[in-house]
Amino acid sequence: MEEELNKPGIKTNRKDFLKKGLFAGSVLATGAVGISSLTSCSNNSGKKIKVLTADGKLVEVDSNVIIEAHPCCAAPAKESRKGIPGKKFVMVIDLSRCKHALKCQDACQRYHHLSGMNVWLKVFKMHDAETMAPYWMPKPCLHCDKPPCVKVCPVSATYKRDDGIVLVDNDRCIGCRFCMAACPYSTRSFNWEEPQYLSETKGAVYSPELGFPQKKGTVEKCDFCPDMLRQGKLPHCVTACPNGVFYMGDLNEDSVSNGAETVRFSQLMKDKGGYRLNEILGTEPSVYYLPPVNRLFPFKDVEITKENTEETK
């Protein structure tokens, strides 16, 4: 365990900063304060600190490995292929609560430093037939259990981990875009040119779990924020949604949480009739949808904004 936490891609310069900049108290980035993320105590002299890992164990690690910035918990490329031990992440999206607020998308764009063109999380207007009622449907990568995108990748640049997450390694991708062709849900985007926000992410060490800094000529997509998951925290879209549309959880624990409430996954599926997209394709997504029944908000038609506002080249 200690091994695991000691590895996160932190370079010497950050360690130095820690030594200089902090006296007492580790600086943990916490959204929700609670045992869940915070049963940690620091010790001035020994520079050892107790941290609750994502699978609920208390471990003692060198305080140097805990850093202030967001990238703190992303594992380096090799480690990132394994996944968080014992977990099987699932997401539930409650369509009855979505009102196209796009806060999820904003947060995703911001924390992954995505340029306006590469959108990982899209919110579609679903209106399949005249006779049906329209509704909004957020669609991240579905992290399929039998991912067609992973099947076709020639260099294992995109891979399926044991915890269910499908990641892309930006440092290995050769940019053939075969995975984009293979994904039946059109979730992947490509860096056609030099990514725009390089300067923002300058100090960051790339990790497939982080998704940035992006690299020209490679593919990227929603990654379920594994760096957050490693800290036992919810992905950015989940915390950003004002209506609690997204639930994230561990299938092995049979619980999912949308930040405000935590429920049993099996119960939720049973009560609300959860389903997955295009089951007929046999891709077995890790993202479940709850049907748009008894909607919280009346459907208000909005022009899909991204379409015209973003600059087009």
Partner: peptide, 20 residues
């Protein structure tokens, strides 16, 4: 004075009071 620290990107900072 117990300590000092900087905000994280979410505009938060958590002081964990040491055992001592």
């Amino acid at each position: 004075w117990i300590g000092k620290l900087n905000l994280n990107y979410e505009g938060e900072a958590v002081f964990v009071i040491p055992d001592d």
